[in-house]
Write a protein that binds this DNA or RNA. Structure first.
Lengths: 358, 358
DNA sequence: CTGTTAGCGCCTTCAC
DNA sequence: GTGAAGGCGCTAACAG
């Protein structure tokens, strides 16, 4: 008996496996391809007996329909592109996991890209998503370009964590301003005046929002912001370490430090410890984005917890929504609960800078 | 001027965007589709002037070739399926990241699935990979089934971390036996005899290997294994916590605990701390798989570090290799360096059980 | 209820 | 150098 599948492979050692196709199944069941298709998909008529024969044939042959062919025909794909900045950072991994679990529940396959925070990679991935004709895209952007490219193709995009295309697509963010304000107010309430915010950058959504909250707290308290208020140190590990060491070993170092994410928090904590600074006696310390270690070290770190999983999940839901009904772009903002632990303490009199002793 | 793209969309509000196709580009450039194709792909002849015209047209139209159509024609896809047990666990996230960076460098797109350690999800993902005609698959399996299904379709598979299809496909593992043995020998060398190994399971690669290493250490030292040697507590968080509390609060608790992965280590550590056990005075503690917190808590935790990123990267390289040349399946085993910190101390005389005071 | 026909978007001979 | 023709695997009309 001759397989319908008697292609090229007649002798050449092909590197690509020969797959059994609908034709193979149809031939084996002794029906036409359309009938086989109807039997398999369940759409359209097929006599019970025939249906069973086709199903049996498919089973025996280990037939798996070609998703590429299906997508081509259907002119859409049950696939969603997800792009995050750095899978190795638990925050992004959790965002991805949150999105994945929702999407998977709705039958979508996920194409996940870790763009290593590079705009080139980001653009390449965006192009790939478009090429694959994904049904939608979720991303934590590092620039506006990828969202633009994808939106221009009529594909729905949801920006997560960072917003670069305000008004042009949905976004799910964290309430950076409020959370940063609360964290800072907590410090101010403890008597701290010289609080340095350590951040990667201050221009985009997260950095800008956290800075805004920080400043607002001082403003609300009618307190001037100290001159060494913000330490902006980029993303390069060596540079970060260097600047933090400088900050902490300066003669007039701050009485409190606010690290704007888990990586910076780890860096600050490690350097402070290495320099022998006692927390909170010598230095009060707060961080944005709770991590396991923050509740394990002694003293525990006061933080605001980002709902990372929920952020991914919400973004996924927004996307599912957006795919069925268009409408004005919305941006959702998630709350970050303040968790007070023991890394923050009232500023002791003798540590308060003399000049400010009102 | 009439667009070649004058399909259905003539008035119905279609949910799926209309993409510009090769025909559109060809029409705009005033050439045939074949010529446009040649100009765009660079394969085959095309007069320079024509080529430029086509390229310009493509650019203006924002043309992005349909990957589905290409794959269908080419009968293969520049895509690799990657499946891990739990993205939220840094170990798996790093494995995925390691694999991704290598694969991306070779122009492959990654379809990443977090199977939530469910064999149903695993099988569903395996089927999806086959349906997508991925060029290969990397996975951290929880059963033999998915690898089997994929291999049967002639698609190369590399098992990572856990091995279920020995002899049938490549695998990249960690040298569990050696690392666990070293960790245990370290404890024995400090005088510990009653060492409990806390593990999720003992039947598969990692659990079995780590148990074997543990037993071997005792065997090499000609010491009997204590009766409360192994605490096997599954994957369910509540159950894990319950069993650990029982273990640590028992009257005759072990003098040392060996946690076989980072999650269990965290659970043990948290319970020990909550129960007021001092490490290492009351309890020596070692863990398999280094995590950031292990070098941050006081005292630091003695561990073996798993090269998770490298594991993913090696798997990716093996896959790239396997895709070009077949051959006998190989399994690579990566070393895990021992990192001695301060969570382990010599067993003090008075803590040594009287019965064993030889 | 079933088979025939046609076409999704692309690429690749093969004539011209 | 270029275009026409055919087909990758699948499915949706439409006849029968």
């Amino acid at each position: 008996m001759v397989h319908a599948n008697q292609r090229a492979n007649g002798g050449s050692t092909d590197l690509f496996p020969v797959r059994t196709t609908l034709s193979d199944v149809a031939a084996r069941a002794g029906v036409s391809r359309s009938t086989a298709s109807r039997a398999l998909t369940g759409r359209g008529y097929a006599a019970p007996a025939v249906r069973d024969r086709v199903l049996a044939a498919a089973e025996e042959l280990g037939y798996v329909p070609d998703a590429n062919a299906r997508s081509l025909k259907a002119r859409h794909t049950p696939t969603v592109g997800v792009m995050v900045s750095d899978l190795r950072n638990p925050f992004y991994a959790e965002v991805a996991a949150g999105a994945a679990s929702v999407l998977r529940g709705q039958g979508y396959t996920i194409v996940l890209v870790d763009d290593a925070r590079s705009d080139l990679e980001e653009m390449a991935a965006a192009r790939t998503f478009v090429a694959m004709r994904v049904a939608g895209v979720l991303l934590t952007p590092v620039s506006a370009a990828p969202s633009q490219l994808i939106l221009k193709q009529g594909v729905p995009v949801i920006e997560m964590d960072q917003q670069f295309s305000r008004g042009e697509c949905d976004a799910v963010l964290v309430d950076n301003v409020t959370a940063a304000r609360e964290l800072t107010e907590h410090l101010i309430g403890l008597g701290h005046r010289r609080v340095t915010m350590v951040t990667n950058e201050t221009e985009w959504t997260t950095g800008a929002g956290r800075l805004k909250g920080y400043l607002k707290a001082f403003e609300n308290a009618s307190r001037p912001v100290s001159d060494d208020a913000v330490l902006c140190c980029g993303y390069e590990p060596d540079q970060i370490e260097k600047l933090i060491v400088e900050l902490l070993s300066a003669r007039r170092r701050p009485t409190a430090v606010f690290a704007t994410n888990n990586l910076l928090a780890e860096a600050v904590w490690r350097q402070a410890t290495k320099l022998g600074l006692r927390i909170p006696d010598d230095l009060s310390f707060v961080a944005f984005d709770d991590s396991p270690w923050m509740s394990m070290v002694e003293p525990g770190i006061t933080t605001v917890a980002q709902p990372s999983i929920e952020l991914g999940a919400r973004a996924a839901q927004l996307l599912l929504n957006r795919m069925t009904k268009p409408g004005r772009p919305r941006t959702a903002r998630l709350d970050c609960p303040l968790i007070v632990r023991a890394s923050t303490a009232r500023l002791s009199r003798r540590r308060r800078p003399a000049a400010v002793a009102s």
